[in-house]
Amino acid sequence: MIKPENQVSLPTQLPAGPRFTIPLRFRDRRRVTMLITLLILGYVTLITLPTMIPDHFKLVEAITGFTENIKIMFLQPHLSNTSWLSLLGGLGQSILLAFLTTLIGSVLAFFLALASTRRFAPTALVLGIQSFMAVIRAIPTVLWVLIYSVVFGLGANAAVIGITFHSVAYLTKVYADSMDELSPEAIETLQAMGLKRPAIICQALIPYLKPSYLSWTFIRFEINFADAVAIGAAAGAGGIGYQLFMSSSFYFDFHEVGVMVYLILAFAVVLEIISYRLRSSNTAQH
């Protein structure tokens, strides 16, 4: 029995109007931490950025100089020190470097992928190869070329080995992934007919995966071309990248740089068109 003085009487009417703001999301410590971190980083950036600008920096002159150089490069491209022949030769050299590394890489990667797909290989081997390849991929191609140039000296050899090295790691991953996606039924069916493993690989795996292999390998070819140009400059591997490096840093000839940039751009467009055609012809089959 509750005594009358202890009894609680409810107010007959609740106060009108919203008493709580309804949150859209629960408060999340991670979100708060992220916001604070971003704020701190923004503040640090804002106060350090002005100190990075050197005293002799003049904004107006810098902008006019920049536009002037861009104008020379893209509006007045012409050759002076190099001939068209050597330039096209250089482009060809870069293309061949990309082609060779992609070719060697894709062959090696195919066998490594077979050894690292869950469809065929034991888990220990899969994890071993995949994590090793992840380590190789984590280090950029240019760095691999420089590492190999310690052994082979700066030049084409180091470039071929270095780019191939990274291509193998990249293609192994994507090939093995597409093998993992293949439905086990196709393989099981051929097993049920008593086929041996090499036959199953050639009769089921390759027909199903050919389209995705082609497009992945082509993407790698595009990457390798870009790398070949960059490495031509960085590791003296020759090709159009080296010529680009010479005419920009050595001769300061921006007219010539413009020609080379246009040439590389044209080739990149051609590659893009080919890969588009390749992809659309593959999807048309499905």
Binding site: P198, A199, I201, C202, Q203, A204, P207
Partner: peptide, 28 residues
């Protein structure tokens, strides 16, 4: 469970690969 990208003839021929050599299986 056919190998869909291959032709009907190739799929039927898979039936006799069980008794053939590795080389024959790999290169059809």
């Amino acid at each position: 469970n056919l190998i869909e990208p291959l032709t009907a003839l190739e799929n039927v021929l898979h039936g006799c690969l069980g008794t053939k050599s590795n080389l024959a299986g790999m290169f059809s």
